[in-house]
Computed example of a mutant assay.
Amino acid sequence: MTAPTRTVRISHALLGAILLAGLPVGAAAGYLVGPLTRWLVDVVGGAPGPLRLLEQIPEPWLIGLGTVAGLVAAALLVAVIRAETIAVEIGADGVTVARDRARCYVGRERIASVFTDPHDLVLRDADGRELLRREADVGAARLAAAFEAAGYPWSGTRDPDEDRFRDWVDGTPDLPGEAHTQLRRRARARRDDDTDTASDLREQLQDAGVVVRDRGSRGQQWRPLGGHGAGRPTEPARSSR
């Protein structure tokens, strides 16, 4: 009998709470139209035209309209959150990570380690290559429980090779010139929000023996391909300058 697929996505309870919060927020906005308009008239001698028009509507109607508007706004926010957060499907044969319409599948036979780092979900093979790295905005504890229940090799909430990563400094002799060129291009792609190019360059760097990750204001960090438990690490060739 095939084991069931486990899906981890943003909590339905959280989305429901956001949706329900739209009701009182909208109602409060409708109730405040009158007091806000009168305050503006008293303090600055006038109020925007839309506020003056809304003030002509009876207060009970304003509160009702505000409640409906708050619910609609909250529903739109929930839809955006669902589209922008990942869903992780953990099956017997592999893992699928989806965000909006983009989906990525990694076969189980390739996965030697699963962990979060610190907010990214990372799937890694036995040679230390990162098969997948995606922002894990669904909760590390929930991911750990699901992967462990499915029998995957969960490695915790810290990269096993954390101490091998180094901040990228352009031009240092630790990396060959071609790697620096690719890292420069990737830095530009990140600044331009060109995620496809940044992802392609990340794979090209791994093909050349360099694993790269992003660390916010610190920029890109790198380590040589290979890792603890993956045999002898493969150090990238040094530049001959």
Results as ranks from 00 to 15, higher is better:
residue 98 A to N: 11
residue 117 D to R: 11
residue 150 A to T: 08
residue 158 R to V: 05
residue 116 T to M: 05
residue 130 E to A: 12
residue 146 A to G: 08
residue 120 D to C: 07
residue 107 G to H: 14
residue 152 Y to F: 13
residue 143 L to V: 09
residue 88 V to E: 01
residue 119 H to S: 11
residue 158 R to T: 06
residue 97 V to S: 01
residue 132 L to Q: 07
residue 147 F to M: 03
residue 108 R to T: 02
residue 85 T to E: 11
residue 154 W to P: 00
residue 101 R to E: 12
residue 114 V to C: 09
residue 106 V to W: 11
residue 97 V to G: 00
residue 149 A to D: 15
residue 86 I to S: 02
residue 90 I to H: 03
residue 149 A to S: 15
residue 130 E to T: 08
residue 124 R to S: 02
residue 151 G to R: 12
residue 128 G to S: 06
residue 156 G to Q: 14
residue 110 R to D: 13
residue 140 A to F: 03
residue 153 P to H: 05
residue 143 L to R: 02
residue 114 V to G: 01
residue 131 L to Y: 06
residue 128 G to A: 06
residue 88 V to I: 14
residue 91 G to I: 11
residue 98 A to S: 15
residue 148 E to V: 13
residue 125 D to N: 14
residue 145 A to G: 08
residue 153 P to D: 03
residue 117 D to L: 09
residue 155 S to G: 06
residue 160 P to G: 02
residue 91 G to R: 09
residue 131 L to D: 05
residue 91 G to H: 08
residue 136 A to H: 00
residue 103 R to K: 15
residue 148 E to T: 15
residue 100 D to T: 07
residue 106 V to N: 08
residue 155 S to R: 15
residue 122 V to I: 12
residue 147 F to N: 00
residue 155 S to M: 12
residue 142 R to P: 02
residue 127 D to L: 12
residue 148 E to G: 08
residue 114 V to N: 01
residue 129 R to V: 05
residue 153 P to L: 05
residue 98 A to P: 05
residue 153 P to N: 04
residue 123 L to P: 01
residue 152 Y to D: 03
residue 134 R to W: 11
residue 99 R to I: 05
residue 144 A to Q: 15
residue 92 A to H: 11
residue 154 W to H: 02
residue 87 A to E: 13
residue 149 A to E: 15
residue 111 I to G: 01
residue 103 R to S: 15
residue 144 A to S: 14
residue 150 A to W: 05
residue 115 F to Q: 01
residue 138 V to Y: 02
residue 93 D to H: 12
residue 123 L to G: 01
residue 159 D to W: 02
residue 133 R to V: 09
residue 142 R to I: 02
residue 92 A to T: 09
